[in-house]
Design a protein around this nucleic acid. Structure first.
Lengths: 231, 231
DNA sequence: GTCTATAGGGGGATAGAC
DNA sequence: GTCTATCCCCCTATAGAC
């Protein structure tokens, strides 16, 4: 067995280019610990890459975040639009509220099924980024998320013609936010005692979320007679 | 004008002891930028205090966070329990779902009314802390939040006897999470174009949140026939 | 209780060899 | 494209004077 031949580095696990390993590691770590609390050194170690690699490939820490968001949103948006297309083509009627909510919420679950462990990371990452307080990050997320969500918002408005557009929009934002919390596992461990690891979005609770949101969308318009404080 | 006399420092604004100024500043800054992204230096400068003051009064950065959480939760929990007491005393029947949801959600609005600008900080801070990914912080929040919320959960279970307890618990966590998002202003600026500053929780949207959540609680139990992915 | 000064570690980013 | 070495800044925390 000649050992001088230049074996083209059939390393055990990597196989992926550095750039992708960095994206994978950042996606996971940002999702688990948040953006501010995750150092580039942690990311590069996890990706088995060099410290300088981040700067070379993405320019800066924020550039890395941007790239991760874009990749994650591309997958989710594609799936969402595909499902919406299916719904519109499947019947001669408009999609119902429940169908729209289910398609929107289940996107996360599908992602997990298809991409396995990485799907969990994607879901958690997106949920985490959504509640980042930094305005720059929020803006980044909003511009990525906008186009695909707009179509769902329109479809929901069509399905709820009697509800003021502003209120549909409010409920839509609530759905997006709640799904984000769910994806970041924040809905699982609000209470002590239940220390089991929660993985998002798995089976049961995704269905509960759909039930919850569908009923919420069907609520009557809010009258302002009750907005005063009780008691 | 003799300049040797030791004027007892009648500074314009302070009047509050250092410890309280630190709590106020930390509450506001943690709420605006998150815990990890806020340095102790920022806090002490905003509080017009010394860098070492935090360590003297609270032992560490996490000690400061703990103190802020405790103070904020004490106010909210007190108000929540008071409202629940009122509801229970006011009629010969059990409180309805809507009454419970309204009392729970409006606590934030009341806080703002009473404590003015600081009330906004409290609300935003609590919302922000709720979605912190650090397990230690989440645990801290959960133990503080637990007792008062337990009473509402019990009351909601009593008001929804036909619904499995696990599903009431899920919906309750969704309410808490959604209220947190709302308080941290996350429900306001998910979409670009609307760059106006959102202050939580003000009038209109609080009412919409109550409508939304009340209907969601009243949803029928989730059957597992639908949890499969659509299409 | 409040200050200055500093320790001691990590952070993001870059230069320049390979 | 990848590495090492390093710059420079800011971080938390503490020691010790007042």
């Amino acid at each position: 067995m000649p050992m001088n031949e230049p074996q083209p580095a059939p390393a055990p696990a990597p196989a992926l280019p550095t750039r992708d390993r960095l994206l994978d590691a950042a996606e996971r770590l940002f999702g688990e610990h948040g953006f501010a609390a995750t150092s580039l050194r942690t990311v590069t170690v996890a990706a088995d890459a060099n410290v300088a690699a981040v700067n070379y490939h993405f320019g800066s820490k924020e550039g890395l975040l941007r790239a991760v968001v874009e990749r994650a949103m591309a997958a989710v948006n594609g799936e969402r639009l595909r499902l919406l297309e299916e719904l519109r083509a499947s019947g001669d009627r408009q999609p119902t509220v429940e169908e729209l909510v289910r398609a929107f919420v289940m996107t996360g679950a599908r992602l997990v099924e298809r991409s396995g462990e990485r799907g969990v990371s994607v879901a958690r990452f997106l949920g985490q980024v959504m509640s980042e307080p930094d305005p720059a990050i929020r803006r980044l997320f909003a511009t990525e998320v906008g186009p695909a969500e707009g179509q769902y918002l329109d479809a929901l408005r069509a399905a709820l013609p009697q509800l003021p557009a502003a209120e549909v929009a409010f409920r839509f934002r609530a759905m997006v936010g709640l799904l984000g919390l769910y994806q970041s596992s924040a809905l699982g461990d609000l209470h002590p005692g239940d220390t089991a690891e929660i993985v998002a979005p798995a089976g049961d609770d995704a269905g509960r979320l759909v039930t919850f949101l569908t009923a919420a969308f069907h609520a009557p318009p809010t009258t302002d007679e009750h907005t005063a404080s009780p008691g």
